[in-house]
Design a binder for these strands. Sequence first.
DNA 1: CTGAAACATGAACCACTATTCAACTACGGG
DNA 2: CCCGTAGTTGAATAGTGGTTCATGTTTCAG
Lengths: 216, 216
Amino acid sequence: MTVSPHPHSTGTGTDSGPSASTDKRPRTKRGERTLRLLLDAAAEEFGVRGYYDGSIARIAQRAGVAIGSFYTYFDSKEAVFRALVADMSRQVREHVVPHILAAPDRLSGERAGMAAYLQFVRTHKALYRIIDESAFVAEDAYRRHYVDVAQSYASSLAQAFGRGEIADGDWHVRAWAIMGMNVFLGLKFGVWDDGQPVDEIAAAAHDLIANGLAPR
Amino acid sequence: MTVSPHPHSTGTGTDSGPSASTDKRPRTKRGERTLRLLLDAAAEEFGVRGYYDGSIARIAQRAGVAIGSFYTYFDSKEAVFRALVADMSRQVREHVVPHILAAPDRLSGERAGMAAYLQFVRTHKALYRIIDESAFVAEDAYRRHYVDVAQSYASSLAQAFGRGEIADGDWHVRAWAIMGMNVFLGLKFGVWDDGQPVDEIAAAAHDLIANGLAPR
DNA sequence: CTGAAACATGAACCACTATTCAACTACGGG
DNA sequence: CCCGTAGTTGAATAGTGGTTCATGTTTCAG
């Protein structure tokens, strides 16, 4: 499990200045290394045991540092979790978006994106859990993640309509609906039940999204 | 918030005999009343503060009974949560299924069911949260809930196909996809954003499910 | 080289809350 | 009316784990 380090500022201001209490960003090579170790360890710990059963002591242990070092880089247990959510949110997008863009049109992009997402979930189950659990640990972060995705999804659909690739409709509702589909298919066929080939699932889902249930 | 009492046996055996430790079911009118009070209080508490921030002491307080009385009816904090999940799972189904069955065909049933579900979520936001959080507190209960729903959903779709109401396809994938759609639309337009009329959302979602995105 | 800032350490502190239990009261069948 | 059982009570217990802090070590700009 790999996580890029970027605690950002959890508080109010932008990350331009050390506005709030103490700035926790590392200033030396050693500090950067330790931060990275802690983030990776936290991702593993929370991924396996969940937020509440996960412990700071165990994170520090996994990272091979003392408990106190954790607090050199994070203000609290919640802070590290939030940093993780932001990071994983970025990772999912970075993995899936290229597959969509590489496709010749939006509809086949949908299919490629679905397959890529499923594959990603299968190889990053911990990550999936962290984003999901953030709904109860850091609701605002969870919300931001899905609102952002829905946003870009909706505008992407509108563009595709402009190119005549899809039918007119409510972009907003459609975006949330398709996100929900993908998330649930990810849970069922990615996390729980990873036997079936991702392409089969993606094909079936694509058929539903493209043509619907109505008899033809 | 109203919850019907039925802690069942959380353990291994069936609820036929007091197989496990002590049988916790009430034997008098008074006992039944207290159990109901506790279940309702727990639903409120967990709905508002979530499982981990919810406290037994506060549940007892809400119910107007002593802490000890809680343990007369439940073995643990987790036990009461599980009882709630089972109960709410039942409630959702009992509310939504009739709307689907009342419709003339499966496709319009889909629309009616979606609208009914949205309306239900809007008036039972706590319930929504409890079922969702069970993914992290009682994974097996969460799984059971959705596997059950998906099951009946898939067979319902297959039947509709038999009547020529919908096109052929993968029932299993479709069932999970549509469940995901509904859950996410419930989150977005039921819990977070309850301004827009449910019928508008249901109509847009129905259009997607029935006809898909492909240009016509 | 040097010293001030950054970083590391981990035992101790502390707040929190699920669970227990022994003493007490209400219920209801006979 | 009596008595055994069901139900009630809430202070005390016990375990947990996040957070602090005083002390020691490493880094690196000047």
